[in-house]
Amino acid sequence: MTVNESAQKIVEEFGMFDDWMDKYNYLIDMGKSLPLIDEKFKNEKYLISGCQSRVWLSAEMEDGEVVFKADSDAVITKGIVNLLIRVFSHQPPEDIIDADISFIDKIGLKEHLSPTRSNGLMSMIKQMKLYAVVFKTKMKEPSA
């Protein structure tokens, strides 16, 4: 699936919920089902600043695609991170860099995008895009 297809699928999933509580329950479930990050990544180096809850994010390159793994000590944050991973992980760097993030608004989580919101969703997206930029630059470098 492309970035847009994954995002569209998430928008459809969230479209099923009428009220905020069902939506957040779903987010909590997604948080609980986030594949756990290896403990070795849970350190300062992988910590995203600007979050009230702690978020660790790692990225690796596999067959031309960026693979993200993450964890948080708060469940809702984990749910949000899981959404981002479903959209951005296993995608080529340039698709991540160019990705449209309007799906977050569409699923009614716009409030979490605000820079004053302390879960730092914007910081997570920024960090993911930054990783993609780094990998893209590395790919361009002539191999020795």
Binding site: M21, I76, N119
Partner: peptide, 11 residues
């Protein structure tokens, strides 16, 4: 986590 609790309490 206080953040989780606070998010729901705000809602």
């Amino acid at each position: 986590h206080p953040f989780d609790a606070g998010t729901i309490i705000d809602k």
